[in-house]
């Protein structure tokens, strides 16, 4: 009797009913959602589990697509188009085009227990172009995009899909990485949203400033052809009354010098600090003030302010911003003199 009981328990408790072979499931690594003719177009990037890892000739991934006016129908159709059981737990990235309303697609994804919502959202112009591309470095584009996000420190828990949706629900602005094919799969810039609607992409200059504000290392800062690179930084906000002081402290190393500096003299570093402090001050204040004019806040200042003064909530354009910039250049590299 005990043995029989044990056998029943083993069969039922070990999940034999739900048992699936790896080859019977379609592991979806990325999803693309775009809007075409008022219909949702859903594309899955599926890992080919039967491909030989060693062989270069084997197809490592394939795409499946479907289209419908309703997102859940489009996803159902895409699931039906798969010869295997779809598996959504390993999704790395959800690619969307800028005309997709993020909140509209979120309810389905949040509600569906098969989706693990720990993935990143990214923007692109043409999902087919991205998913059809086969990189030499990484055959799976969703994984390649995930690796690109790590480079700009976007792979933070607060940038996950759930957190972005939560920000939108609370009426705050978000930013998403913009993925393009530029000879290789590349992260071109970031797209900024005024609450739930796409506003614009950052210019190259703005994107450079955004990167060093976001603690991306090795971003060059140039002053009359002299340049430094920040290797460590801190960005803090001091909120008092209706003023927010943006405090940016950076430690930098010298990248390139065109003028003759006496780097053996400690006062030279103080001069360089002051020089680049002004440059960074100008760059950051111009960048944030431009966004402020558009009433867009991608640094989360409004959220912090409204958390503190929740009875008197303000938009970013109504908050007075001050800046406190500190730069400490403490590495001259291996050359003490300008090499000319």
């Amino acid at each position: 009797m005990k043995k029989l009981l044990l056998i029943i328990l083993i069969i039922l408790l070990t999940g034999c009913y739900d048992y699936k072979e790896l080859n019977d499931i379609a592991i979806i690594s990325g999803i693309g959602i775009s809007k075409e003719n008022d219909e949702y177009r859903v594309i899955y990037e599926v890992i080919n589990t039967e491909a030989n890892k060693e062989s270069n000739n084997d197809i490592k991934k394939y795409n499946v697509e479907a289209q419908d006016k309703n997102l859940s129908n489009a996803i159902s159709k895409a699931n039906e188009a798969l010869a295997k059981q779809p598996y959504f737990e390993q999704i790395k990235v959800l690619l969307i085009t800028k005309d997709v309303n993020i909140l509209d697609i979120s309810d389905y994804i949040f509600r569906n227990e098969k989706f693990n919502t720990s993935f990143y959202l990214a923007l692109c112009d043409d999902i087919d172009e991205i998913f059809d591309y086969t990189s030499v470095n990484e055959p799976n584009n969703s994984i390649a995009i995930n690796n690109l996000l790590k480079k700009i420190n976007y792979d933070k828990i607060t940038n996950l899909f759930d957190f972005n949706v939560d920000n939108l629900m609370q009426g705050y602005d978000i930013y998403l990485p913009y993925i393009v094919i530029d000879k290789e799969l590349a992260l071109k810039t970031i797209g900024i949203f005024d609450n739930n609607s796409f506003k614009r992409y950052l210019t190259n200059e703005e994107y450079r400033i955004f990167k060093y504000l976001n603690k991306v290392k090795e971003v060059p800062i140039i002053n009359n052809n002299d340049s430094i690179k920040i290797y460590s930084s801190k960005l803090n906000y001091d909120i008092k009354d209706s003023n927010v002081t943006i405090k940016y402290d950076a430690k930098a190393s010298i990248n390139y010098l065109t003028k003759q500096y006496n780097l053996r003299n400690q006062n030279t570093y103080q001069d360089l600090n002051n020089l680049f402090k002004d440059t960074i001050y100008n760059e950051i204040s111009t960048f944030i003030n431009n966004l402020q004019k558009d009433n867009i806040d991608i640094l989360g200042i409004t959220k912090l302010y409204n958390t503190k003064y929740y009875k008197n909530k303000l938009d970013i354009k109504d908050i007075k911003l001050d800046y406190e910039i500190n730069v400490d250049i403490d590495k001259a590299g291996t050359a003490f003199k300008e090499v000319k």
Binding site: L5, I8, L9, L12, L13, G15, Y17, D18, E113, K114
Partner: peptide, 16 residues
């Protein structure tokens, strides 16, 4: 875990 398994097959082993 067992998204396709009927409820009865989940709770019966639990009760056993």
């Amino acid at each position: 875990y067992l998204t396709n398994t009927p409820n009865i097959l989940i709770v019966l082993p639990f009760f056993i």
